[in-house]
């Protein structure tokens, strides 16, 4: 059986009556030569590191956050959501705080799991772990969710790109958001078709998003966009779990994203020559950080 898109995966899932994460483990066994135990163990370590990155980020001393552009935003949101009724609800407000936390750790040269990239490393941990807490799931469910996410990401990599330099932010945070949406739909008991529908909805919602980092650093707007990517994933998941399908199938959305990438100007692909990077404030920040030269 060849795997090149979501249709192939859904076909295997239907025939074997298994979820996407089972196909992902079998795929990894076949392509790596490692045993199922080794593969599951390695993903377990990645999961634990994601959990640790959230916790370490939330504990970061304000002075240890290396960014010149923001401070302890994750902590602010955690305090706010505990003291108030967050408008975006308990799960989403927490997921966004988690995403900010991992990104603050990342820009402080902390240890993170690139998923799929370092610039989008906040989305998956935020979505999967906040959903696990809401749904009262165990670590093994979180590990399975990472396999689902990994399979979705591999399909995107195969048919488009996961790199901001090639496809803009849609390829990084958009992909992370799609991967996370599929992962939590399966975790919540949705079918493989529903998982890919959620991924499609998440990706459609950020179609065309450009990569325009201020001063070329993975900070502004990246950290907050990780938060938005996390909320986007959870909302897409809820829509699908309510029975709302994606009108456009996942594989066609990925195809469309690739088409958008191809005509996206290079100024909008991680070069910091467009978008918010060249706003007066963006340029002032760049000059302050790196000097005028």
């Amino acid at each position: 059986m060849m795997i090149k898109n979501s249709l192939d995966i859904i076909e295997i899932c239907t025939k074997e009556n298994v979820p996407i994460w089972e196909v992902a483990i079998s795929y990894e066994e076949a392509q790596s030569g490692f045993s199922r135990e080794e593969i599951v163990e390695k993903m377990g370590r990645h999961f634990s590191q994601m959990q640790k990155s959230i916790d370490t980020g939330l504990d970061l001393d304000d002075r240890k956050i290396r960014s010149k552009m923001f401070r302890d935003d994750a902590k602010k949101l955690m305090v706010y959501r505990k003291k108030n009724k967050p408008l975006s609800g308990t799960t989403i407000s927490k997921a966004v705080a988690y995403a900010l936390s991992v990104m603050e750790l990342n820009c402080s040269m902390g240890r993170i799991v690139a998923s799929p990239t370092a610039g989008s490393c906040g989305v998956l941990p935020a979505v999967i772990i906040s959903a696990m807490e809401t749904l009262k799931m165990k670590k093994k469910h979180g590990v399975n969710a990472l396999f689902t996410a990994g399979m979705v990401g591999t399909i995107i990599a195969k048919n488009a790109s996961l790199s901001g330099a090639i496809g803009g932010c849609q390829a990084e945070i958009g992909s992370a958001s799609a991967m996370a949406a599929a992962a939590v739909v399966e975790m919540a008991g949705g079918s493989p078709q529903m998982a890919f529908d959620a991924a499609a909805i998440a990706l459609k919602s950020v179609m065309g998003l450009i990569c325009d980092p201020v001063a070329g650093l993975v900070e502004v707007p990246c950290a907050k966009r990780n938060g938005m990517g996390a909320s986007n994933a959870l909302i897409a998941a809820d829509m699908v779990l309510a029975g709302i399908p994606s009108v456009i199938p996942f594989d066609e959305v990925v195809w469309a994203m690739n088409k958008v990438s191809q005509i996206m100007p290079s100024a909008h692909k991680e070069t910091s020559e467009g978008g918010i990077a060249i706003t007066p404030t963006g340029q002032r920040l760049r000059d302050e950080i790196f000097g005028e030269d």
Binding site: I112, G119, L146, A149, G153
Partner: peptide, 10 residues
């Protein structure tokens, strides 16, 4: 896609 574990930011 899920990995590597690395020291950030890039």
């Amino acid at each position: 896609v899920i990995g590597p574990v690395m020291i950030g930011p890039s």
